[in-house]
Structures are given as structure tokens and as C-alpha cells.
């Protein structure tokens, strides 16, 4: 198993533990533990299997498992995007494995990038989203829980499958997808009507950063991607879970805690998102400086959406307030001293 996958898996397990310990008393703890645990086991299986094909087959099972959970979308709707993802990734694997003109391997690179986007629920394959649906049955499960490990496995699989030239094309596809998702996600998180949808788009925007990091094919890019995924799993996801209660009660507040949450979500210093952005800009400058300029401009779009999401948190109380404080503290710690996190993934 890749060190990066092990670390992301551990982060997902920790996020699940935080959700279980700090969720409000009236929430269905047992159901979340069972469904989250099963999702975690499936995610571990994706990372643990030795071949790319087996990972795709585990992905099929994960999709079917999620489609069987109680939710508001019909089964067929839940299976659409994972079906496209598996088909694209499998076709890409065929194209990568056979002999032929160089163009074939470039098609494989495009298929791997598109399949990854479809599996995660990013543009241009946004999953159908219903803010009222339980988190385990909603696309947020793919974006924030299964997605990080899946992305690490697919990127590593792509590096094993593709020759060097096509590997560069794969990186370019990831950067292109990343910039589009950053821009679209951050603008939509700011401008969309529903707070629930705004949270979903904010995950999409964060994934844009991670895809750019993976696509840079430099050490700084991989480090940035890992830190972004840390902020997704142990920052945005727990804060989203906390905000769901406020969303139900339709509470919007403007207190210091809301500003702190907004700062963490926007990736400002000293939170982990800031370190990720610095690494990403440094990597982009090394590769092609105009890209760093574009990334820096798009990063500014995080601010209005994050302020809105921070306000939508309401005022956390009781054990939920403790959970929010813990998440913010973890993000500050990772932002100030990310070395152990990066060393754990051997980056």
C-alpha cells in the first residue's frame, strides 16, 4: 500500500472518529459508525489491492454499497457517475496497455484524468446532489471520504500504466481539470442560493487545488496535494458536518468563531490550506510561472465563498463546539508544522 494512501486512510478514520464523538446527541451515531466504517473498509480495500483492475472492481462494489443506503436519490441516479468513472478508467487502462501509436497513450491519459474526475464528482461530472440527504449516501462521501485515497491510488496507477510522454499529458489534464474546478467551485460556493450546495462546491474547489498539485509532477506539487487533502478530510468535512445542524435550524451568525472557520476554509495563514497554497504556487513557478499567476488569481476567489460558509456554521455549542475547536487546532498545527504529515507520506 502507498504511504500516501495509508496516511489519507488514517486521516479519514480520524475524521470519522471526530464526527462520531463530537456530533450532537440527537444524531444517529450507530448508523454513521456502521456506514462510515463500511465505507472506510471499502476505501482501505481500494488502496490495498495489488492491481489497478482490482481497485476498479472494489470501486464498483463501493458504488453499489452507497447506492443501497437509505437516501433521497434513486439507485440508478447514484450509479451513473461511478459507472462512467469505472468505464473511463477501464478504457484508459486498455489504451495504456496495448501497443500502437503514441496518440493511444495520450487518450489513456485523458481517460484516466476524466475517470478520476467522474469518480470524485468533479466537473464535468458533478454528481446529483441533495443537501438534505444523509452524508454517507450523498456525493460528499465521494468528495471527502473515499475520494482522497482513491485519487492517490489512481494517480499512482496512472504513473505505473503510462509511458513518460503520456505521463506529462496526464499531468496537463489534471492541471486543466484542476483550474476549471477551482474557478467553478469557488464562484459557485459564493453565488449559489443554497448553503448546502455552496458547501459541496467548496469541496469541488478544494479538489481543484489537489488536482493541480497532482498534475505538477514535482515534489512540491505532491506535498501541496497532500496538504489540501488533509484540509478536505480533517477540515472542510468535519466543519461541513457541524454546519448541517445549523443549516437545519437556518441559523446564520457573524461571531469570531465564524470568522475563524472562514479563514480556515479560505486557506489563510496559519491554517494548513495556506501552506498547501504556498507549496502549490512554488511548484507552479518552478514548472511554468504564468500558471502560478493564474493559480494565485483563482485562489482569491475562495474568500467570499468561505465567508459565506463560515456564517452558515451558526454558533456551535456543547460537544460540537469542542469538535470545531479541535479541527481548527489541527489545521493550525498542520499549517505551522506540516513536516510530520509530509514525512509520513514520504514526500
Amino acid at each position: 500500500m502507498l504511504p500516501e494512501s495509508i496516511e489519507l486512510l488514517a486521516l479519514a478514520a480520524f475524521a470519522l472518529a471526530i464526527a462520531l464523538v463530537f456530533m450532537p446527541d440527537r444524531s444517529p451515531r450507530r448508523r454513521l459508525a456502521l456506514q462510515g466504517g463500511a465505507g472506510l473498509a471499502g476505501t482501505a480495500a481500494v488502496a490495498a489491492v495489488p492491481t489497478f483492475d482490482l481497485a476498479l472492481l472494489v470501486l464498483v462494489l463501493l458504488a453499489v454499497f452507497q447506492a443501497a443506503l437509505e437516501g433521497r436519490r434513486p439507485t440508478a441516479a447514484c450509479l451513473k457517475a461511478p459507472g462512467v468513472a469505472v468505464a473511463l478508467l477501464a478504457l484508459a487502462a486498455v489504451f495504456a496497455r496495448v501497443g500502437g501509436p503514441e496518440l493511444i497513450h495520450r487518450f489513456a491519459a485523458v481517460g484516466l484524468g476524466a475517470g478520476l474526475a467522474a469518480a470524485l464528482g468533479l466537473l464535468p461530472y458533478l454528481h446529483v446532489f441533495d443537501p438534505e440527504e444523509p452524508v454517507t449516501a450523498s456525493p460528499i462521501g465521494w468528495l471527502a471520504f473515499v475520494g482522497p485515497v482513491l485519487a492517490a491510488v489512481i494517480v499512482a496507477g496512472a504513473q505505473g500504466l503510462l509511458p513518460a510522454d503520456a505521463g506529462a499529458a496526464f499531468g496537463a489534464v489534471l492541471i486543466g481539470l484542476g483550474v476549471v474546478n477551482m474557478a467553478w467551485g469557488s464562484l459557485a460556493a459564493w453565488l449559489t442560493e443554497s448553503n448546502g450546495a455552496a458547501w459541496r462546491y467548496s469541496f469541488v474547489a478544494d479538489w481543484g487545488l489537489a488536482l493541480c498539485g497532482f498534475g505538477l509532477t514535482l515534489a512540491d506539487g505532491r506535498r501541496a496535494a497532500l496538504l489540501v487533502l488533509f484540509t478536505v478530510v480533517l477540515g472542510r468535512l468535519p466543519l461541513y458536518l457541524a454546519s448541517r445542524q445549523a443549516g437545519k435550524d437556518r441559523v446564520v451568525t457573524e461571531r469570531p468563531v465564524n470568522l475563524l472557520v472562514a479563514a480556515a476554509l479560505a486557506g489563510s495563514a496559519p491554517f494548513a490550506g495556506f501552506a498547501a497554497r504556498v507549496l502549490l504556487l512554488r511548484g507552479a513557478t518552478q514548472l511554468f510561472w504564468p500558471l502560478a499567476l493564474v493559480l494565485a488569481l483563482v485562489m482569491l476567489l475562495w474568500l467570499p465563498g468561505s465567508l459565506r460558509l463560515g456564517r452558515s456554521m451558526g454558533l456551535p455549542r456543547g460537544r460540537q463546539a469542542l469538535g470545531v475547536a479541535l479541527v481548527l487546532a489541527l489545521n493550525v498545527a498542520a499549517g505551522l508544522y506540516p513536516l510530520p504529515l509530509l514525512a509520513g507520506a514520504r514526500l
Binding site: 476498479l56 472492481l57 464498483v60 439507485t75 459507472g83 486498455v94
Partner: peptide, 18 residues
């Protein structure tokens, strides 16, 4: 949808032979 997914799984498995 489930049948399509089942056939997809079989085709992915057959692709491993490549």
C-alpha cells in the same frame, strides 16, 4: 442500472487479461 454495472464489472475483469 444494476445489470449494466454487473456487465461492466465482468468486462473490467476481462480487461485484466490485457
Amino acid at each position: 442500472a444494476q445489470t449494466a454495472f454487473a456487465v461492466l464489472a465482468l468486462a473490467v475483469a476481462a480487461g485484466a487479461a490485457l
